[in-house]
Amino acid sequence: MNAPESEKFAVVTGGSAGIGEAACRALAADGWTVYVAARRVEKCEAIAQEIGGIALELDVTDQRSVDKLKELPQVDLLVNNAGGAKELDYLRDASAEDWQWMFDTNVLGTMRVTKALYPQLKEAKGLVINIGSVAGTDAYKGGSGYNAAKYGLRGMTRAFRREEAPDIRVCEIDPGRVKTEFSLNRFAGDEARAAAVYDGKLNLEAEDIAEAIRWVASLPPRVNVDTMSIMPADQAER
């Protein structure tokens, strides 16, 4: 596959729902050819068909799955969105299995994907956008595992930016409370617990973060946006 020089290619991990899906749609509307990458390949295929993109089955915790990304001929933009949290346990009740999953997905998964696509990104003088969280700068009760993972992602992002500047631009976008499947996944499908996170509060929508991703990706190569924190107005007093 030889892409026209004018065509821009983006890979979005966790692209089957939430912020990832919204980012795929926003980027496609802005002229990008988007690889919609996630474990739920059927959903990726449906989204890709709607936006003129390409579906990829991808599990960021599986090195063999990630290695398939090396076959992509051109990548100008990587959005590392795949991630998540498990439970809301105090440290004294922490599950080592949940912590391992959070690190493997949020930190090691981002490393695996970025490393696999590094040659294409270097060749394109491309852009990497890592989706962090305000949890990476502001710890909260019950969040120690997720806080630790997102703090780790933040450190990795900043180091990578310094290592690769100016050849690869690196940005971190840190959302606050966004109403997606995040809490439903965190609480293992418990709809009541998930709904309680958002009830009676202002909540961002996935499209709000997608617009920030689209904007950063639209900037000229001379511009590197370091970090963006985006939260609903009632969370901004934190």
Rank of each mutant, 00 (worst) to 15 (best):
M102F: 03
V197I: 14
N80Q: 05
Q235K: 06
R177V: 03
W215S: 05
D62Y: 06
F160R: 00
S133L: 03
S144Y: 00
L27I: 06
G143E: 09
G20Q: 06
E57D: 05
Y146P: 09
T114N: 07
S183E: 11
I54P: 04
Y146L: 03
P221A: 13
Y198L: 13
Q74R: 15
A210Y: 01
L58W: 04
K68S: 12
P220V: 07
E211C: 01
I54A: 03
Y151G: 00
A55Y: 03
Y118G: 00
A94M: 15
N81P: 00
L153K: 05
Y35A: 11
A195W: 13
P166F: 03
V34A: 08
E163M: 03
E163C: 00
R162Q: 15
A196P: 15
P175E: 03
G53T: 04
F187G: 04
G18R: 05
A22V: 04
A236H: 13
T227H: 10
T157V: 01
R158F: 08
E97L: 12
Y146Q: 06
A149F: 04
V225A: 09
E207H: 00
S218M: 02
R92V: 13
L72W: 10
V60K: 07
V79Q: 08
V134W: 05
E181W: 00
A3C: 12
D167R: 08
L117D: 05
D226T: 12
G200E: 13
Y118C: 09
V79E: 11
V107E: 12
A206V: 07
M111S: 08
A85G: 14
R222E: 11
R169T: 01
L184A: 07
R92M: 14
G142F: 03
E57S: 11
M231P: 09
K125N: 15
K179M: 10
P4H: 13
G189R: 08
A29D: 14
P166C: 10
S16W: 01
W101P: 05
I19C: 07
G132V: 02
D234S: 06
M228K: 06
G136A: 05
A195T: 13
V197C: 02
L72I: 15
A149S: 15
I173F: 02
E237L: 14
L56M: 11
T61W: 02
I168G: 02
E237Q: 15
Y146E: 02
D226E: 13
L153T: 02
D226I: 11
Q74S: 14
Y146I: 03
S229Y: 14
V113D: 04
T157C: 03
G126L: 10
N203H: 04
I209F: 06
T227I: 11
S218Q: 06
R238V: 13
V79H: 09
D76P: 15
T157A: 11
G143I: 01
F182N: 07
D76T: 09
V170C: 03
A159S: 15
W101T: 10
A82H: 04
R154M: 08
G31T: 02
E57C: 04
G145E: 07
P221H: 08
G126W: 11
V178G: 05
T110R: 04
V79A: 08
P166E: 09
K70G: 11
R186K: 12
T157Q: 02
A148G: 02
V178K: 03
R25T: 04
D208N: 13
A236D: 10
I54V: 14
E5R: 09
A17C: 02
L121W: 08
A194K: 12
Y118E: 10
E87T: 15
G83H: 01
A96D: 15
T33I: 12
